[in-house]
Amino acid sequence: MTITKEEILAAYHFRHATKAFDPSKTISDDDFEFILETGRLSPSSFGTEPWRFLVIQNEELRTKIKNASWGAAGKLPEASHFVIILARTHQDTRYDSAYLKEQFKDIPEEHLAKFLGMVEEFQRQDFKLLDNERFLNDWAMKQTYIALANMMTAAAQIGIDSCPIEGFNMETMDQLLEEEGLLEGGRFTASVMVAFGYRKEEPRPKKRRPYEDVVKWIK
């Protein structure tokens, strides 16, 4: 089936940061697996896939997250599904990590060293990511926003609402998730959250800056 440009743009107009979800409506398993798959198939720098999607449906844990995150307080427990997107830390994203060697195991051995050397050059010289462990963590977090955007757009295309959430203290959230055994000893860190469900009320008209102010053609 061919999706028209008009249908795709209609999904972008439909999507908004939903502030209140209808607690009586639940996303079907099939629809939510579709949303997760669009996140899993998202592109990432060098194909590192430095993410993990925690689908938080446990009510006790939802309550803990709600109490620890001012941004999530208004979304839980009304949202049908709630996802915390984790980013892999420097332990896994550094060019010589065991994770990257496993991630690229399909590259022939005679080419793997050269490829990882290219990753090292990028991390060490091009983006200066090795100057501070936080730089590598932030680099991985940037990748997770690609998956986040794809998941929200895919949801909108099938009539499901969403709201991205950055309203939380990173140290507090990481401590909570570590206590729950979800960060694997510092190999992951909380990057961003996103709630999914169905809107309780219609949003205000979408407002964006003019095309001419956002797009500049250099010919």
Rank of each mutant, 00 (worst) to 15 (best):
T4I: 11
T4F: 09
L9G: 01
A10Y: 03
A11Q: 10
Y12G: 00
F14C: 02
K19R: 15
P23D: 09
P23W: 08
K25G: 00
S28Y: 04
F34T: 08
I35G: 09
I35L: 11
E37I: 03
P43H: 02
R52T: 05
I56T: 06
E59F: 00
E60W: 05
R62P: 01
F82L: 13
V83N: 02
I84V: 09
L86E: 02
R88M: 14
R94F: 03
Y95K: 09
K101I: 00
F104K: 03
D106Y: 02
I107D: 02
I107L: 05
E110S: 06
A113P: 00
E120N: 12
E121M: 12
F122D: 09
R124N: 15
D126V: 14
L130E: 13
N137L: 14
M141C: 14
Q143S: 08
T144H: 11
A147Y: 15
M152G: 02
I160H: 03
D161L: 11
N169K: 04
T172N: 12
E180Q: 13
E180W: 01
G185P: 13
G186Q: 14
T189M: 12
V194K: 11
A195N: 07
G197P: 02
G197N: 01
P205Q: 14
K206R: 15
K206M: 09
R209S: 06
E212T: 14
I218T: 10
